[in-house]
């Protein structure tokens, strides 16, 4: 269905383009999960810090956006060669913003995880795959962004 909205000044009109079979973007589903507790002092501490640093380089914040104040936990699965399984990305927890801000924060976190794996995946120790095959990344914009 098309819908025309006249704008008087220029006779400007708008209608939705038939998107055909294009995918529609699902709203992030928020699960009640506990806040993320880092394993930086646990078994994965040797490579977890490198993993965090790699994702951090791609986590882009807009300090004037309310999304920059949202804390969220992103859950996902990795293949043995360190690649993210795209369909596994889920929002596990979010707080500190309205639904719009959470949606933008989720998008920024998801892009960070997908972008920074590059073409070869994250450099993680294959022999310890059982430890990192599933990951929960907690994005807490507590400190001022650089």
């Amino acid at each position: 269905m098309t819908r025309w909205l006249p704008v008087l000044a220029l006779g400007l009109c708008v209608l939705a383009v038939d998107a055909g079979a294009a995918e529609t973007r699902p709203e992030p589903v928020i699960y009640a999960a506990p806040d993320c507790t880092s394993d930086s002092g646990g078994a994965g501490s040797d490579y977890a810090a490198q993993f965090a640093a790699a994702v951090q380089r791609c986590w882009v914040l807009d300090p004037a956006d309310r999304a920059a104040r949202v804390s969220l936990t992103l859950g996902f699965a990795l293949t043995p060669d360190g690649r993210v399984k795209p369909d596994s990305l889920t929002l596990r927890h979010a707080s500190g913003g309205d639904p719009g801000a959470i949606r933008r924060a989720f998008g920024a976190a998801r892009r960070a995880v997908l972008r920074c794996q590059g073409s070869s995946g994250y450099p993680l120790p294959r022999e310890r795959y059982a430890e990192w095959r599933r990951v929960e990344l907690c994005f807490s914009p507590a400190k001022p962004a650089k």
Binding site: A68, W132, K143
Partner: peptide
């Protein structure tokens, strides 16, 4: 799951 916290992003 492996849990990791990130507190700083980039602008």
């Amino acid at each position: 799951p492996l849990r990791i916290e990130i507190t700083e992003g980039v602008v």
